[in-house]
Amino acid sequence: MGRTGDAVGVGIIGAGNISDQYLQNLTRFPDVRVLAIGDLLPERARAQAEAYGVPRAGGVDVVLDDPDIAVVVNLTIPAAHVAVSEAIIRAGKHVWTEKPLGVSREEASRLLLTAEAAGRRIGAAPDTVLGPGVQTAKRAIARGDIGRPLFGQTTFQWQGPEIFHPNPAFLYAKGAGPLLDMGPYYVSTLVHVFGPVAAVAALGLQGAPTRRVQVGELAGQEFPVEIPSTLSVLLDFEGGGQAQSLYSTDSPLVRQGSVEITGTEGTITIPDPNTFGGPITITRPLARHFVPPEPVEQEIVDVAQEGVLAGRGIGLLDMVRSIADDRPHVATGEFAYHVLDTLLSIEEAAEQRRFVEVASTLDQIGALSADFDPFAAT
């Protein structure tokens, strides 16, 4: 594995908006060192390199040809994820890719086979679900703090990314939309809690056939909407649990990050899966003596968050440490493939207005320990 001193060499391909969040953290983790940034717009890569003290920058080849880089972070647009990840593997490097793993089952499956044949690892976002928020809640559920998990409810609704993103068209293209863009956070959280998804049902609609950029140099420019902008979803899990989810970029009312898991002995509220931590509470059942119209009083228990709060990049860091220890990492390509398979099945269910079986499954789902510390040198 490529190293500089005691740190593993990391490169980044894609210097767009999301790169700031990765660079803010990866440049602080002592187990890795960002050595190069590449982008189709070399000047954009150089600007990010200068901002974060990265020694080399330019086109994509600056990253692929660097022998000191062992792992490359793929931050390109969804439609390019697989092609770029395959190029990284051909260069002899491991891959951490932003979500989704790909935009079709065929290309994502091919990517996993390519990595396996080359002896290289694939890790995939979101790693927000590896943060102290979701992982603490996962441990609480596994302990039986809410009894047997029965069902989940998640909500993501707002006006859409065109109100802040300077070039949002790709977020309404095939492979994105509220489902493929935000669904990975919620589906990944639910799979961590309930296990693999067995079947899905969904209804979808399109609020408008075109959207208009509202900020930046492209403000006023219209672009087409290629995907459903609102979906109502049902999930049926192999282990018997169920969940219902709403994904929408058509709502003036903002309601994001809502994740609730109800069990036989309580309902646990999980922090926004697009963040790494936050308050966790368990609401207990009503007292047996409650008689309407008496005031409703329920016991609400705070769950102490366990672990060190960091940010994007902890999934890559876990993968780097796992390679060194010769053990599986948590955010595997297989996990990302099951999430993608589930999301594409939801698209198909919405198109066909019926239940769709999810073909893929998972043998095991990893977890981070409560003592995982990104800022410790290991």
Rank of each mutant, 00 (worst) to 15 (best):
R90T: 12
G92R: 00
G92H: 00
G92K: 00
G92V: 05
K93P: 04
K93W: 04
K93A: 09
V95E: 01
W96A: 12
W96E: 13
W96C: 10
T97W: 02
T97P: 03
E98I: 09
E98S: 15
K99T: 04
K99G: 09
K99C: 08
P100D: 11
P100L: 09
G102Q: 10
G102C: 04
S104W: 05
S104H: 02
S104K: 00
R105D: 13
R105C: 09
E106Q: 14
E107I: 06
E107L: 11
A108H: 07
A108C: 05
S109N: 12
R110Q: 13
L111E: 05
L112T: 08
L112F: 02
L113M: 12
L113P: 00
L113S: 13
A115E: 08
A115I: 02
A115R: 00
A117I: 00
A118F: 00
G119L: 03
R121H: 13
R121A: 14
R121M: 14
R121D: 12
I122M: 06
A125E: 15
A125D: 15
A125V: 02
P126R: 00
D127A: 00
D127G: 01
T128D: 11
V129A: 09
L130C: 03
L130S: 07
G131W: 01
P132Q: 02
P132Y: 03
V134H: 01
Q135P: 08
Q135T: 12
K138F: 09
K138Q: 15
R139W: 11
R139E: 15
A142Y: 00
A142I: 06
R143A: 15
R143W: 09
R143K: 14
R143V: 05
G144I: 01
D145L: 15
D145Q: 14
D145C: 12
D145P: 01
G147Q: 06
G147M: 04
G147Y: 06
P149I: 07
P149Y: 09
P149F: 06
L150Q: 10
L150F: 05
L150M: 12
F151Q: 11
F151W: 13
G152L: 08
Q153F: 13
T154C: 15
T155Q: 14
F156A: 08
F156R: 04
F156L: 13
Q157F: 01
W158Q: 10
Q159C: 08
Q159A: 12
G160M: 03
G160K: 04
G160V: 02
G160R: 07
P161F: 07
E162L: 07
E162V: 09
F164A: 11
F164W: 15
H165S: 04
H165P: 00
P166M: 06
P166Q: 03
N167G: 10
N167C: 01
A169N: 03
F170W: 12
Y172L: 05
Y172H: 11
A173Y: 06
K174I: 14
G175A: 06
G175D: 10
G175I: 08
A176P: 09
A176T: 09
G177R: 01
P178G: 06
P178L: 07
P178N: 05
L179A: 08
L179V: 12
L179K: 09
L180P: 03
D181N: 14
D181Y: 15
D181L: 13
D181I: 11
M182H: 14
G183M: 06
G183L: 05
G183S: 06
P184T: 02
P184V: 05
P184L: 07
P184I: 01
